[in-house]
């Protein structure tokens, strides 16, 4: 396992634990991103940076604006104002498929497995630069068969690590909710993204698979891909993330390493809605006591 990410993770040690703080080597930098629906301000982020090569968790109570923020960053929704750069490239106003091509790939909170395609076809769809996706080349299989085989091999290796290899010929619509989540994540990895954004990857996933999924996310990081994920399972957040960003009512209210953030009073207030004098360090029960209904 390569560990080029180590220095990038280590570099977070010296970063102050405060909202909107600058990172040593940010892959994503967002400024003044604002989105309102009628009178409701869903997202109002002054400044946020994501450190390259790390696993960053984005947490916050239901309705905090996490999904909307994902939608804005990836071009699926348009902000009322704001800009952001990814790998130094301005991305505001860029169409979603271009955002994905530039290396920022997201999954959806409500899974979008393509039900009537097989699991394998779902995976193949993720691969980029396919000759067979060109209209005229497509009717001459000899032009793309070789590449298709390579893609299928890579897809199979990914499916194996997500425990979906036996399902490769099944229609995706026949999978359980948790399996669809896994498929969607594996499919996103087929794009070979520089940064993958997972919206609640664990929701509905069989707890027996949790550990292997966590291992897989670490492998993704080890492979040089930056991970940003939204999650409500605080054990997972604590287990895996290098850095945690907390949103509440559209704003970033706190940042820091997991332990620090979970004992932060502002964070506990945001989650519980009332002042709470007991820190949520070890058990994390107070935070998981209000799981999001999906």
């Amino acid at each position: 396992m390569p560990d080029d990410h180590r220095p990038l993770v280590e570099a977070l040690k010296d970063v102050p634990h405060e909202a909107g703080v600058a990172k040593p080597d940010p892959i994503l930098v967002a400024d003044d991103v604002m989105r309102h629906f009628g009178g409701l301000v869903a997202v109002d982020v002054d400044h946020v940076e994501i450190q390259r090569g790390t696993i960053t968790a984005l947490i916050g109570p239901n309705g905090a604006g996490k999904t909307t923020f994902f939608n804005l960053l990836t071009g699926f929704d348009r902000p009322n104002e704001g800009q952001w750069t990814f790998e130094g490239r301005q991305l505001a106003g860029v169409r979603p498929h271009k955002v994905a091509k530039y290396g920022m790939v997201r999954t959806f909170q409500l899974t979008k497995a393509l039900s009537r395609l097989t699991v394998m076809e779902n995976m193949r769809l993720g691969a980029q630069h396919q000759r067979g996706e060109k209209l005229f080349a497509s009717i001459f299989p000899f032009l793309w068969r070789g590449q298709e085989n390579e893609i299928s091999e890579r897809a199979l290796r990914l499916l194996e690590s997500f425990n979906l290899a036996q399902k490769q010929d099944d229609l995706a619509g026949s999978l359980s909710g948790g399996q669809r989540k896994l498929l969607e994540m594996a499919r996103a990895l087929m794009v070979r993204p520089d940064m993958i954004m997972l919206d609640e990857p664990m929701a509905g996933v069989n707890p027996a698979l949790t550990q292997s999924l966590l291992d897989h996310i670490r492998e993704v990081r080890a492979g040089g891909t930056t991970v940003l994920f939204v999650e409500h399972d605080m054990d997972m957040v604590r287990d895996i993330s290098d850095w945690v960003i907390v949103m509440s009512q559209g704003k970033v209210i706190a940042e820091g390493p997991p332990h620090d953030v979970m004992s932060n009073e502002a964070v506990i207030d945001a989650y519980l809605g009332t002042h709470h004098d007991k820190p949520l360090t070890d058990s994390g029960e107070a935070l998981t006591a209000h799981p999001e209904e999906v």
Binding site: F76, R95, R116
Partner: peptide
């Protein structure tokens, strides 16, 4: 494959760079 995927969910296809 892209065409059939579009029939099912356009956003999923967009998220994969097509």
């Amino acid at each position: 494959r892209v065409i059939k995927a579009i029939r099912e969910d356009e956003d999923a296809v967009r998220s994969l760079g097509k």
